[in-house]
Computed example of a mutant assay.
Amino acid sequence: MSQLRFGAADVAGIRLAISPVWETVSSMWALDEPIRHAVHLPWIDRARVTLRRPEVAVRVRPLVELTRPRRWLPDFLTPPAARPDVELAEQLDQIAATPPAVVVRDLLATTPRRPLSPFGRALLGDPRRLLPQLVTAVRIWYDEAVAPDWSRIHALLEADIAHRAAVLAEAGAGQFFGQLHPTLRWLGDRVVSDDPWRLDFDLGGRGLVLNPGVFAERRVLWNLLEESPPGGTYPVRAVGTLWEVGPAPSGDPLARVVGSGRAALLHLLDTAATTTDLAHRVGMSCGNVSQHLSALLAAGLVARTRQGRHVLYRNTEAGMVLLRAARGE
């Protein structure tokens, strides 16, 4: 069990952000354990082909070695996002600027669970020379394997953040952490996390940056060291819809009633989503999705709410009745 202790300034300093570097680094776990990450098999199949290309494999090797299954990640490799719309290049610059002493400290913090890999040992001995190779490996892996699907991934993460931000604003920290993940409990001045790591951190007025993670499938993952910038990654909602594409199948009885495009949207709107998110997931233009949503809204099958700068759509009870009938539930 771990706990993070909050002061008033820390509660006020809770932030939600998308971290491109986290998604890039943690995607390696899916390649190593495809059964555990079976939801990502469409991406895994493509990424493995990419990694087999010799010119990619040799340059990505440093990242591969630091992200072996069940190996803790050094904190400097996954820095909390400095702002909600941070770009990969900014995070890579932050990693590249890590002082050698911090690289050494963070690498040693990962060793209680597994010994360092050969590259990890080399980086421990000469961080100033080898850290640029690691930064290059992350950039290349993003460009080759993550960037082609980034708009789809980003849309899912953005929809999750819109939902979580609304819970935090409307219900407060207790409900926010209670709904963030089943392993978390809010005890008034601390978050208790049901995990095997036994961390005990005082945030000390620094706040906490949280990002949803596509490849974080079981627990909330925290930075390892109290002196690192406080950050955590929680499993994103509705990850099972990430790789769904195209309209509803022709055999779907609901499609025969409302049309394949509108049926596809209804199947996805068990959880709230934005127009952009839906467009990426069904392979339509935003304009076409908006037209379908307008028709579903007029028919009372979906509802629309605004949360900050986001407009979210979700099935109404009438829409759910149609879905349950079509699914034979």
Rank of each mutant, 00 (worst) to 15 (best):
R139T: 07
L312I: 06
L296I: 00
D200N: 11
V239T: 15
A169V: 05
V191R: 02
G240M: 14
D32V: 02
R46Y: 12
G251P: 03
R61E: 13
W222Q: 01
H310T: 06
T274E: 13
A82Q: 04
G300C: 09
G178H: 09
P253V: 06
V214N: 01
D149E: 03
R256M: 01
Q291G: 05
G7K: 10
A169C: 02
P127N: 10
D270P: 10
R262Y: 06
D202V: 03
L301D: 00
V311M: 08
H267D: 11
V60H: 09
S250N: 13
E217A: 14
A295V: 14
P253D: 13
T98P: 02
F6K: 08
P249G: 12
T276I: 04
F6S: 07
S294I: 06
V191L: 06
V146Q: 02
V56C: 03
P182N: 04
L51M: 15
V49Y: 05
G172T: 06
D75L: 15
A38W: 12
A325K: 08
E226Q: 12
W186F: 08
P69I: 02
T111G: 13
A173W: 12
E33G: 11
A216N: 09
A109R: 12
A12M: 02
W141H: 08
D126E: 08
T183A: 15
P196M: 11
V257T: 13
Q307L: 05
T305D: 02
